[in-house]
Design a protein around this nucleic acid. Sequence first.
DNA 1: TTGTAGGCGTTATCAG
DNA 2: CTGATAACGCCTACAA
Lengths: 353, 353
Amino acid sequence: MSSQETPRRPTIADVARQAGVATSTASVVFSGKANVATATRERVLKAAAELGYAGPDPRAASLRRGRSGIVAVVLEGHLRAAFLDPVTTAMMDGLTDGLADLSAGILLMRDESGEEGPAIADAPVDAFVLIGCSGRTKASLEVVLGRGLPVVVIEGDAGETVPRITLDNTEAAAQVARHVRDLGHQDVALVTLPLDSERERLPVTPERVANATIDVAVHRLSGTRQVFPDAPAISASGSLIDEGVLVGRMLLADAEKRPTAIIAQSDLLAVGVIRAAEELGLRVPEDLSVAGFDGIAVDGLSDLTLTTSVQPAVEKGRAAGEQIARMLRGEPAVTQHLTCVFRAGTTTARAPR
Amino acid sequence: MSSQETPRRPTIADVARQAGVATSTASVVFSGKANVATATRERVLKAAAELGYAGPDPRAASLRRGRSGIVAVVLEGHLRAAFLDPVTTAMMDGLTDGLADLSAGILLMRDESGEEGPAIADAPVDAFVLIGCSGRTKASLEVVLGRGLPVVVIEGDAGETVPRITLDNTEAAAQVARHVRDLGHQDVALVTLPLDSERERLPVTPERVANATIDVAVHRLSGTRQVFPDAPAISASGSLIDEGVLVGRMLLADAEKRPTAIIAQSDLLAVGVIRAAEELGLRVPEDLSVAGFDGIAVDGLSDLTLTTSVQPAVEKGRAAGEQIARMLRGEPAVTQHLTCVFRAGTTTARAPR
DNA sequence: TTGTAGGCGTTATCAG
DNA sequence: CTGATAACGCCTACAA
């Protein structure tokens, strides 16, 4: 009789049978939802060990419970690019915290325009976090809303009905600009984040701003322009140190009409600008003041402290996680507006005269 | 009669009823597994639209199919730290490629010692990729193997039975060292990666090496020591530019017995060392030769090209993804040994005499 | 081409 | 505290 072939994995029913209890009892032993007599529990555990049963199949449990314990994070563009950005990683960090109560996992997805993998349309997740909702991401939002799953949008233009996490980019940028102005600077140049998916390294023109799709860049720019309406600006092709170096060189090339201060829309860009300045033998901040945005810990800027606006990157993630948690509990989610904090560093000083 | 309250989401059965077809037919319409008369399909789709049915519930589908379409990636330590490392991000990139055939999602997890979230023990995933299997990660490996799921370990000490992706760290490091030796250097100092989870910035002693838990550091060190058995070494507390600066200062502090070359175990550390040298007014490579490891594109090293060993970071990820794909197809997976390629750059030169 | 039936492995409910 | 039973929502032979 021992010739029965059973290559299939044991189920909780097998365990229960082996232990001489009901499946429901065995189930409770594993879920811990109710009290079980110690003797019974031991019997079940022993049976499980004998059969090599490693606990309930999560897929079946998901179906039954209606929850998979996974939250999808939809990023724009290649995953690699996303993780190159310290702000994004910090945010992910906060997200894991905010989701901690749910002890939910994070499923990474990019919002590919959809031709190939079904991906976001049928991922077994309980909720979605969309990051930077611009253009194509809106299509993703449609799909998600169609599925009727909870969704939170971080720093994206998603409409009033969707709970969002927003930042006071405009005001924070204005604050940085005021600091620079108060130091006496009048010749100021700007380095912006990419304005659209083209990501071209180009002078910023009113037309380009009008057609821009990346809100963060537009908002920060408008804040800065409140103070320096006519400051020349160049858009970087990404938030990278090397980009900052390239744009910095462009802005500092002409020794005649060199600005006395450069305001960048990200700390990485600012560091690049500083490096470009050093290349040219300019001292920061004596000859050139440089300000950034984000307030991340930039690796490789040994001694200087960057003047910047510190954005609550971790907090953004945490807030999103908390809203998701609320929605999954059936409570209404709310849009949360977070604010940046200005930090005066050692990279800005009074304008040389 | 319209007073019926149905707050529950429609199922495929509801759609089928509404369309006047069998559930199986409706199912096929969505899965596309078989041919359906165009008219019928349209009817089903219309019914779905009317009911607001957004496609099959992925949880139910997973159970039925026995696949969730998700692969877990287990990282050591905080996600933030993991993604600060360019090698890791590159690897993730490759992984997404390698997994592309499966159009599987990537579930990020950290291998926390387990007290809290069930996490890895019951995530609804089809397979696992463990990265850097040191110490606590081994516990994770146990759990995964217990679940009987396919698993691949990248650069970790997991035993012969587990398919792994490995790197010839020892030989590659030896190669870098030989290059430096062939340039005539005799006073050489080393900067290693952290040796253990303590991550202390300390001189490397034989005792510390004996107790080291991070294989990568040990292997690279042993390769270098094949050529420079007595070179003094300091372990960094992480693979960061700023760490390289700190350790660089330590190694270069004493102008009397300053090394003529420094070999770092990562490119980021090497860049830091270069920066430390510049601070001291040393020219690289004229006064000091510096070599790294990894061959990543370091953001912010404008003109120099680092002498280094280029590791196939992206390929590591892709290889892991491919092995996972094979295992899920039922084919046997194999351990894959990848090799680094030495690259002579402009940061090393003949030893000054 | 379409319909019917059974089960994937759990867990919630409720009765004992 | 334990046990029986009914879903959870879908997929896939197999039959018509």
